[in-house]
Simulated assay, not measured.
Amino acid sequence: MAGTDGKFETLVRIGYFSRAVLYIALGLLALTGASRMREGMDGIFRAVEDLPAGDLLLWVLVVGLVAYALFRLASPLFDIEHNGSDAKGWGKRIGHAGSAVAHLALAWTAFRFATGEPGGGGAGASQAAAGVLSVDFGALALGLLGIAFFIAAVAQAQKGITGSFMRRIAADAPDATRWLGMAGYLARAAVFAVIGWSLVETGFLSQGASNVKTLGEAVASLADTGWAFTLVAAGLLLFGLFSLILARWRIIPDLDPHGRVPSFRS
Rank of each mutant, 00 (worst) to 15 (best):
A209R: 09
R167D: 12
L57T: 12
T202K: 02
W59C: 06
K159E: 14
T4R: 13
R19H: 09
G3D: 15
L73P: 05
D50C: 10
A193N: 03
I169Q: 06
A176T: 09
F113R: 11
A141V: 15
A141L: 15
D42E: 09
P253Y: 06
V194Q: 00
A125Y: 15
G184H: 02
A170Y: 02
G208V: 08
A228I: 08
Y16T: 03
A107P: 04
T230C: 03
A223W: 03
L222Q: 05
A102H: 09
L186I: 13
I252R: 09
S210R: 02
G121K: 05
V48R: 05
G259I: 04
Y185K: 05
V200D: 04
R167L: 02
A220V: 03
F113P: 08
L61N: 02
G98E: 04
Y23L: 12
D5K: 07
R72Y: 11
F229I: 00
L57Q: 07
F264M: 14
T230W: 11
R168E: 12
W227L: 08
L106V: 11
A67D: 08
G89R: 01
E39A: 09
G240S: 03
L244A: 14
S126C: 04
G95E: 04
A128K: 09
G146M: 13
L58Y: 06
L70T: 07
K159L: 13
G160M: 10
F113G: 10
R19Y: 09
F71M: 01
V212G: 02
M182E: 06
I151N: 01
L205E: 11
V101R: 08
F242N: 00
F204M: 00
A47L: 08
S266P: 13
L61P: 07
A171L: 05
S221T: 01
L29R: 04
L144E: 10
G138Q: 13
I151F: 14
L31C: 01
I252M: 07
S35H: 06
T109A: 13
G121I: 09
A233E: 05
D254R: 15
G131N: 14
A153Y: 11
V200G: 01
Q156T: 05
M182L: 05
V191E: 12
G15Y: 00
S266C: 07
G95C: 00
L11R: 12
L22N: 10
I14S: 11
F137S: 13
L236V: 13
V12Y: 00
R93S: 09
T162W: 01
F242G: 01
L73R: 10
G98L: 02
A139S: 15
L57G: 01
D172R: 05
V200R: 10
L11H: 03
F71D: 12
A139Y: 08
W90H: 11
G98A: 02
G240C: 08
I24R: 03
F78W: 13
L236S: 07
T230S: 13
L65C: 04
R72H: 12
R93F: 04
D79I: 00
V48L: 10
S35R: 05
I169L: 05
W59T: 06
S206M: 10
L65F: 01
D50F: 07
A105M: 12
K92P: 00
L65A: 01
V101T: 14
A218Q: 02
L73F: 14
A53D: 13
V66E: 04
I24W: 02
N83K: 15
T225N: 06
G54H: 08
I169R: 03
A34E: 07
T230M: 05
